[in-house]
Structures are given as C-alpha cells and as structure tokens.
Amino acid sequence: MTAPRRFVVDEELTIVTAADHRERLLASLGDGNALRIDLSGVGDVDTAGLQVLVMARAEGFRLGLPVEFAEPSAAVTEALALTRLEL
C-alpha cells in the first residue's frame, strides 16, 4: 500500500475551475492513486466546487481508492458549515 498521492487545489474552487479540477481528479484516480486533497490554499469556493469534491470521494469509493481531504482553508470550512456537509 503506497501513501496517497497529494493533490493540491489552489486559490479557486468554483464553477470557473470546476471542469479542470474534475479532469485532474479523475485522471489521478484513473492512475490507481489514493488521494489526499489539500484544501489549504482555497480562497474561493462555491456549490460547483463542493460538487467536485463530493464527486471525487464517490468515485474513489467506487474504485476502492481512499480519498481524504486535508487542511481545509477558512473559505472551505465556512462552505462546509453552511451546507452541513462532512468531508
């Protein structure tokens, strides 16, 4: 069992970047990597961003690859509190 690959989401986790993030996340999972998604640098998050995170976890579950989230920034924490979503 290798250590999960670190996946960094920078500044923007919104509809503007959602398509990019989705591509990259699916590519990483497709390579058979467990993921550790680093959210410490996220400054802006919206519903589209949250949807991509939930998608990544579901896809990881489907592939049997653990997906975990690390170091949520203030913006991410606020969005999670707002939606009562747990990552």
Partner: peptide, 9 residues
C-alpha cells in the same frame, strides 16, 4: 449527483 463520468461540473 451523477457518476463522475456523466457529471457536468
């Protein structure tokens, strides 16, 4: 939320 493959982000 659909499967990742079908999802329109």
């Amino acid at each position: 939320l659909p499967d990742a493959a079908d999802m329109d982000p």
